[in-house]
Design a protein around this nucleic acid. Sequence first.
DNA 1: AATGCCATTCTTGTATACACGATGCTTGAC
DNA 2: GTCAAGCATCGTGTATACAAGAATGGCATT
Lengths: 216, 216
Amino acid sequence: MSENVGRWLRDEIENAILSNEFSPGERLDEMVLANRFGVSRTPVREALMQLDAIGLIEIRPRRGAVVIDPGPHRVYEMFEVMAELEGLAGSLAARRLNDEAREAITAAHKRCELSAKAGDSDEYYYANEEFHKAIYAASRSEFLQEQCTQLHRRLRPYRRLQLRVRNRLSTSFSEHCAIVDAIFAGNGDEARRLLRAHVGIQGERFSDLVASMATR
Amino acid sequence: MSENVGRWLRDEIENAILSNEFSPGERLDEMVLANRFGVSRTPVREALMQLDAIGLIEIRPRRGAVVIDPGPHRVYEMFEVMAELEGLAGSLAARRLNDEAREAITAAHKRCELSAKAGDSDEYYYANEEFHKAIYAASRSEFLQEQCTQLHRRLRPYRRLQLRVRNRLSTSFSEHCAIVDAIFAGNGDEARRLLRAHVGIQGERFSDLVASMATR
DNA sequence: AATGCCATTCTTGTATACACGATGCTTGAC
DNA sequence: GTCAAGCATCGTGTATACAAGAATGGCATT
């Protein structure tokens, strides 16, 4: 546990929300949370204020906190922004690539290949996360990296759902291949274009998303 | 004042930071703030936790809160991301433009023109803000709009400094003209390209930024 | 029987009290 | 004279107490 309870609680509750333990729309009672974690209301409130500031929950004055339900359209908008930021990260990565970043990307890409060929969608999920994070890091823009990581976290549950769709695994991996080629070739524009397409949700993938969101 | 003191304080302190009343690196004492605003430490702490979550201040455990000093390089990175998001907003605006948005952009553009011709850099600053916000709104992506607005707020002090540079006013305005043309023509790619260039800090503008940051 | 109003109760918002850790100053020893 | 160690003081971290507003249930009235 982190050194102060407030921060620890923030992470704990954030994880609970992102792993869907607290469903969208659910009310978060301060006393219930306090009892559950064995602390007083004060650090719980501090954690909730932070989650409110981040945008994960909404605190309505005198009426308590509820988990925000983004809704399909808003999730789509979030993917749209994510695609743009990843595109930028890719383009910067292509320009600023160094040995360390190249190795990190190669390693993550290899891991994706193995799990994709094994058809292990859970393992691919983690490998995919590592792959994208390697690209963020390769951009060598700390701020961009933070923004990407944060958005990535918030979109986690939906990404996971998407991987379940048809043969998304092999499609995703072949897109990764092209992205790696573009970055390693120093072709920033191409990397940007490919990443935007890879991350964004166009056409039928939006209805896939809506369908998978409905069945939770 | 907002209905709960915590949120009010958050906005209050946030404004104080963004208007440079609290300088980067400055320590924010909880009791001092509590006395200044005539409240107890509790809501002050809640406000600080939120600002920490947003990234405006840093709370080091048991050592208090300090205003984050982004430093020139990080500010550059923030402008880089801002440019990308504004580019996306512009491209969406070009595709999704409706009458309402067109009028809002036209009005803000007109206001920019007047203040630019008058050489009133303060007035241009506000008109410029309205212009960019009109474009965010025209993108009709709530999430993107929020992200843009938030980043815009954080970059406020630096934007203001930039306008003081040489004949940035007229340069900025002529860029606006091209942007408006592209959006109204429905040319998303061009709007994106122009906005990226308009917002980003290339070449000498970075050293201008560094110079202006040094002299505060 | 249904609806509206009032009271009770529950939960949030704020203040205060207490505890623990960090920082800085003073004193003593080398 | 300088450096280190210990103590004191200040400030943060957490708990608890108290106040105020919202929700809910019951009672009365139509």
